[in-house]
Design a protein around this nucleic acid. Structure first.
Lengths: 125, 125
DNA sequence: TATTTTATTGCGAATAAGTTGCAATAATAC
DNA sequence: GTATTATTGCAACTTATTCGCAATAAAATA
C-alpha cells in the first residue's frame, strides 16, 4: 500500500494547508479549482487521516471536517487534543490552540478526543 | 404548542432515565418494549431537547445520542458542559461528571459544547 | 524507453441517519 | 360529549458517506 503522488492529492492538501478553517467534503469540492469526484475526496481525506497528515472532526451537524495536523508541521508543539470552535453565524469550524484538559476517574483510557464548542467566533463577534 | 402526555413519550423518558448510557434512536427502538415509529422517536427526543429534559450528543460516528439532563433532575449541580465518553469496545456513550474547562481567546462566545473522548471505559479496562 | 504492477480515480449504486408532508389518532380543553 | 390540535405512523425524501468495479495512471522494473 505505498502512496502515490497525484494532482488530486496535492490539490486537496494544498487547499487544506492554506485554509484557516477545517473543511468538509463539499466545501473542498466547492473551493478547489479542479474537478474531483466526491468519493475520491473522501478517500484521499481518509488516507490523509491514516497517515496522520490531517485530522478529522465531527461537528454537531454530524458532518466530518478535516484540518491539517499542526503537530505534523511542527512536531515540537504537540497539540494533539485541542478544542475546535464552530461558529454558528459564519458556519465554519476552526482548530484552536487550546488543549483539552480533564481529570478522569480511574479505569478510563482516553485514546482520542472530539471536542467542538460552538457559538460566535472572533470574526463574527 | 402545549405538550401532551402519551405512552410513547413516557416510555422513552423512562428508558432514558433508567439508562446509565446515552442512547441513539436505534438503541431506543431496540430496547423499548413497545413499538414506536422511527420518526416519532426522533420527534419525541427533539421535543425533549427543546424542553431541556434531555441533551443531545453527536459522537465521532456522526450519530445523535440522547441522555437525560442531570441538571434538570437536580438543578443545584449545574453540570452544563461535561465530557462524554465513548467506549470503543462496548460501543456505548456515557455522561461523565467531569466539567469541560477551557480558557479561550477573547472574542469567542461559547454557547454550547459537544465534547466526546473515546477509548476504553471503566467497565472494559 | 517500454512494460508491468497496483494504487488511485470516476461512476453509479447502496447504505444509513435523520427529516418532512400528510392523513389518522388521541390527549386535553371546553 | 364535543371540539381543538398535539401527536403518531407511514412513506417518501434528503444528505453524508461508503463500496464495487472497471478504467486510469503513478512508480517500479526490465
Amino acid at each position: 500500500m505505498n502512496r502515490r503522488n497525484t494532482p488530486t492529492k496535492e490539490a486537496i492538501l494544498d487547499l487544506l494547508s492554506n485554509s484557516t478553517k477545517a473543511l468538509s467534503q463539499d466545501a473542498i469540492e466547492r473551493q478547489i479549482n479542479i474537478k474531483i469526484n466526491r468519493a475520491t475526496i473522501y478517500r484521499v481525506l481518509n488516507r490523509f487521516c491514516d497517515d496522520d497528515v490531517v485530522h478529522k472532526i465531527v461537528a454537531e451537524d454530524g458532518k466530518q471536517y478535516f484540518a491539517v495536523c499542526k503537530k505534523c508541521e511542527n512536531p515540537q508543539e504537540v497539540i494533539q487534543h485541542h478544542f475546535h470552535f464552530r461558529c454558528l453565524l459564519c458556519d465554519t469550524i476552526e482548530c484552536l490552540q487550546v488543549p483539552v484538559e480533564y481529570s478522569f476517574p480511574n479505569g478510563y483510557e482516553v485514546q482520542n478526543a472530539n471536542c467542538v464548542l460552538s457559538g460566535v467566533c472572533n470574526d463574527c463577534s
